[in-house]
């Protein structure tokens, strides 16, 4: 038996799952607050541009989104299998390509800020 290459995708899935577990709820809270009359300073146009325009902010946002997307993509692949979809090769290509496209889009928009 040959050893699998799945560690590449699984490692990113696990890293992404951890990042998401720590950050996704609070990020949602942040964008929910304005609806309840609390405007976080960061969400003003000038402040957010300042943050996402700085090299460190860019790197942070890019890293988080990259891992989040890979986490979601890999788990979706497994979930589709659990729902009875057996075209795993095709599913894998589709979900990972989607994650890659999202990552490229993230980089593109970050560089235009």
């Amino acid at each position: 038996m040959a050893k699998s290459n799945k560690p590449i995708v699984w490692g990113l899935f696990a890293a992404g799952g951890t990042v998401t577990a720590f950050l996704t709820p609070v990020l949602l809270l942040l964008t929910l607050l304005p609806a309840f009359g609390v405007m976080p300073g960061l969400l003003s146009y000038d402040n957010l541009r300042g943050f996402a325009g700085h090299w460190f902010g860019r790197l942070l946002v890019f890293g988080i989104l990259f891992l989040m997307l890979w986490h979601a993509a890999h788990r979706l692949r497994v979930t589709l299998h659990d729902f009875g979809v057996r075209a795993d090769g095709l599913v894998a290509v589709a979900v990972y390509l989607a994650a890659a496209a999202g990552t490229v889009a993230t980089g593109y928009f970050l560089l235009r800020i």
Binding site: T20, T24, L27, L28, T31, Y45, L48, R49, A52, V61, L65, M68, L69, H71, A72, A73, R75, L76, V78, T79, D82, G102, A105, T106, F109, L110, R112, I113
Partner: peptide
């Protein structure tokens, strides 16, 4: 396992936020 759909959705919203932010003040608001 199904949480991944919603995590993916959130990632999409964040990417959209970056897009709007790059398009200028009005788009962001």
């Amino acid at each position: 396992e199904v949480t991944c759909v919603f995590i993916g959705l959130h990632a999409l919203i964040l990417i959209m936020a970056l897009m709007r932010l790059s398009q200028g003040r009005e788009a962001w608001e």
